[in-house]
């Protein structure tokens, strides 16, 4: 139970950390200044969320691995983030369609986690849910602008959605850790969450004149540490300084 608990909170932290790392890659490269600032701020929110979750995971584990050790000194196979978080940013449509799909997921997840039997997790969720709602508003606006925009922006948004759809099944397919956490009153029912997510996302995609892709093959494995080829490179960049200069502090 306590190892499942650690793993559950760690995975939430990994999602925030890896997505935050991806978002931070836009810093200095976004299409215009306001977006650059927005992207950097959103990245910061995710990294802040990761810090709270990884600190909490560290306390549950109780082995003296702090948030930094968990972020910078674990290997790829030990990361439990969803595959969708680690996919390269692609174009702006890809980044923001992914962000929208995950923002709505996080908004619903944190709304539910406010009632978690894990009080610290409930407190983190109460904080994160407000930011997730704010993020979802912005990414949702972009999905509308891309989808209902020019032929070019529509085509790119649709291509992004088609590529990303197969990575959303993982969010709502409970594994042994999710089941144990739901039984303990720590995590919500993923089937319910998934149904609600689908309702919101599909209505928004229709409003954005985008086609909801068919439900065929779904990628899986991120939670067990089986990552895509992109994960190693992401970690190499994120962890380089601590790996090259162990214990470096400034």
């Amino acid at each position: 139970m306590s190892s499942a608990h650690f793993r559950y909170v760690l995975r939430l932290g990994d999602n925030a950390l890896v997505l935050g790392q991806r978002l931070s890659e836009w810093c200095g490269h976004s299409p215009f200044l306001e977006e650059d600032i927005a992207m950097a701020n959103t990245a910061l929110d995710h990294i802040g969320r990761a810090r709270m979750l990884l600190s909490h995971a560290s306390a549950i584990e109780g082995k003296g691995r702090d948030e930094d050790a968990l972020a910078y000194l674990r290997d790829e196979r030990e990361f439990g983030n969803f595959l969708i978080c680690e996919l390269p940013n692609g174009d702006y449509a890809f980044t923001l369609v992914r962000q929208y799909l995950l923002d709505v997921y996080h908004q619903l997840l944190f709304e539910a986690l406010r009632a978690s039997a894990d009080e610290e997790l409930a407190a983190i969720a109460a904080k994160a849910v407000k930011e997730a709602a704010y993020h979802a508003r912005r990414s949702g606006d972009w999905v509308l602008r891309f989808g209902d925009g020019t032929d070019e922006s529509q085509a790119r948004a649709q291509a992004a959605l088609d590529a990303l759809w197969s990575y959303t099944g993982e969010l709502f397919t409970p594994d042994a850790v999710d089941d144990a956490m739901q039984a303990a009153g720590i995590a919500p029912d993923l089937a319910q969450l998934g149904a609600r997510w689908r309702q919101i996302v599909e209505a928004h995609l229709v409003a954005a004149t985008l086609n909801v892709p068919p439900d065929d093959w779904q990628a899986d494995g991120g939670r067990e540490g089986l990552h895509t080829e992109h994960m190693g490179r992401l970690l190499a960049e994120m962890q380089f300084v601590q790996r090259a200069y162990p214990g470096l502090d400034w």
């Binding site: 306001e34 600032i37 927005a38 959103t42 929110d45 508003r137 912005r138």
Partner: peptide
């Protein structure tokens, strides 16, 4: 509204 995010995380432009 110009941007959801302004000069710091807590402000919009």
């Amino acid at each position: 509204l110009v941007s959801e995010f302004g000069s710091t995380a807590c402000k919009a432009l």
